[in-house]
Simulated assay, not measured.
Amino acid sequence: MAAAETVALVLDEESPLPESAGDVEELACRLRGHISQLGIVVPPGTSALRSAQQLASAGVPDGYMPSRVHLVRLAEATQDLIAAVQAHDDSPAPLTLMRCWRKPRVNVLRGAVFAVALACLVWAASVPRT
């Protein structure tokens, strides 16, 4: 889902081209991350995977137009990988790889620290003094 959103940021007709080189680099980095994540799910040796990995390994070229063209090619390669994943969506195991863990809330962490501190205090109080 996030990969499709990033691709839409680059390829959508209404989305403007990135203005600065930093924006181009950030979008290219995000697309490289999506390519590496999707590469786990796609069967190895797929032509879309090979071309996407080749584009991802190349750096962003200097200059206004070459960097934007490279960004569009990365987005198109990511879009091809998304299509390959959807075509190969018969195995449920890769979906568990992409699942993200929720971060525990602050109060849960505070409660755990308090419980450990209380247990240490009780243990220290129960040790005989010599």
Rank of each mutant, 00 (worst) to 15 (best):
M1W: 02
M1D: 09
M1L: 08
M1Y: 04
A3N: 00
A4S: 10
T6L: 11
A8T: 03
A8R: 11
V10F: 09
V10W: 04
L11M: 02
E13G: 05
E14R: 13
S15N: 10
L17E: 13
L17D: 12
P18W: 01
E19A: 12
A21D: 12
G22Q: 10
E25Q: 12
C29T: 14
C29N: 11
R30G: 01
L31Y: 04
H34Q: 07
H34G: 01
H34D: 11
S36G: 02
V41F: 15
V41H: 11
V41E: 15
G45K: 01
T46I: 03
L49N: 03
L49C: 05
R50H: 05
S51Y: 07
S51I: 05
S51V: 09
S51W: 04
A52F: 02
Q53V: 03
Q53F: 02
L55M: 08
L55A: 14
S57M: 07
G59E: 12
P61Y: 05
Y64H: 15
Y64M: 12
M65R: 14
P66C: 07
P66W: 05
S67K: 00
V69K: 08
H70L: 02
H70D: 00
L71V: 08
V72C: 13
V72L: 09
A75G: 09
E76Y: 00
E76F: 01
E76W: 00
A77D: 02
A77T: 00
Q79C: 10
D80Q: 15
A84N: 01
V85D: 00
V85S: 06
H88T: 14
H88C: 15
D89I: 07
D89G: 11
D89V: 07
D90L: 14
P92D: 09
L95F: 13
L95P: 01
L95V: 04
T96W: 10
T96K: 10
M98K: 09
M98L: 11
R99T: 09
R99V: 11
W101G: 03
V106K: 11
N107L: 13
L109S: 11
L109V: 15
R110I: 09
R110D: 09
R110G: 08
G111E: 14
A112T: 10
V113S: 10
V116G: 04
V116C: 11
A117Y: 01
A117N: 04
A119D: 03
V122N: 07
A125P: 00
V127G: 03
V127L: 14
V127D: 01
R129M: 09
R129C: 06
R129L: 13
